[in-house]
């Protein structure tokens, strides 16, 4: 399917061409996703991970799809709520420096798992 990966993960940037690189934080990545959703892009993968520990990851990759003429209000709600929730959890924490490489790998693997769900779709 037609998609763009919004990412601040260098491993993803190296491997995929259909990506938009964010030279910044997870929050900046989510904000870019939010801006694109408001421009009409569909959200393909959920902006948040499935566990609190992965919310502390310094890397995040989110897949957006086609650009439509109209904004999808449900998707706008999801990305807005995700940013609020993300900030709630991370404001009180330090960025975890020691495991950066493992977080990069996990983000890539979970992204690829999401991409495989979307294989063969228009």
């Amino acid at each position: 399917m037609k998609s763009i990966i919004i990412t601040n993960n260098p491993l993803v940037a190296e491997k995929y061409e259909n990506m938009f690189w964010i030279d910044g934080s997870v929050e900046e990545t989510l904000v870019k996703v939010r801006d694109m959703v408001y421009q009409g892009y569909e959200l393909v993968s959920h902006p948040l991970a499935a566990s609190l520990r992965m919310l502390f990851s310094p890397y995040r990759s989110v897949i957006v799809g086609r650009k439509n003429e109209k904004l999808d209000f449900d998707h706008a709600q999801i990305i807005e709520d995700s940013i609020i929730k993300y900030k709630n959890h991370t404001d009180a924490r330090k960025v975890e420096e020691s495991n950066r490489d493992d977080y990069k790998k996990m983000d890539l693997l979970l992204l690829e798992s999401a991409l495989s769900d979307e294989k063969g779709k228009w």
């Binding site: 959200l43 393909v44 959920h46 999401a114 769900d117 979307e118």
Partner: peptide, 9 residues
């Protein structure tokens, strides 16, 4: 199953 994609959900 809990999918990560919105279409999966």
């Amino acid at each position: 199953p809990e999918h990560t994609t919105l279409s999966g959900k």
